[in-house]
């Protein structure tokens, strides 16, 4: 038996997981996302990254970005290292990719703000 706290939404359900592999059962979850989270945590835990990337624009020295889908938890610092190599020098919009298919994870790093478009 393992206990987890679901991090999918602010409700933060306390999950109890019994069994292993195919036969695991999850209780304590309010919705289906809780079960999916528990299964993912027991097999390949995933997380999102929200961070910033340097820009070439002094009025706006960093631009907020995120990964377009969750990535394996153990890749967080490797992906951070990739993001920290980049300098954005084009006025990109929210949703535009800063890095495509980062580290071959089939996930893009995308801008979460269109603030650069508003610069003079």
């Amino acid at each position: 038996m393992r206990e987890l706290v679901c991090i999918v939404c602010p409700r933060g359900c306390s999950l109890t997981i019994e069994g292993e592999g195919e036969g695991i059962s999850v209780s304590g979850n309010f919705c289906k996302k809780g079960k999916d989270f528990a299964v993912s945590e027991m097999t390949e835990p995933k997380r999102t990254i929200c961070t910033t990337v340097k820009t070439a624009y002094p009025q706006c020295p960093v631009l907020p970005v995120k990964v377009s889908a969750d990535i394996p938890k153990d890749k967080i610092f490797e992906v951070m290292a990739e993001i920290n190599k980049i300098t954005v020098n084009k006025k990109i919009a929210r949703g535009d990719a800063v890095i495509e298919n980062v580290l071959g994870l089939n996930v893009d790093v995308i801008a979460t703000s269109s603030m650069l478009l508003k610069l003079d």
Binding site: C9, P10, T48, C50, P64, K66, R94, S113, M115
Partner: peptide, 16 residues
């Protein structure tokens, strides 16, 4: 992220 789950049923960052 985590903004807008109630309103938009989506997990948005603050700037989004």
């Amino acid at each position: 992220d985590g903004f807008g789950l109630v309103r938009f049923k989506e997990k948005l960052s603050g700037p989004e």
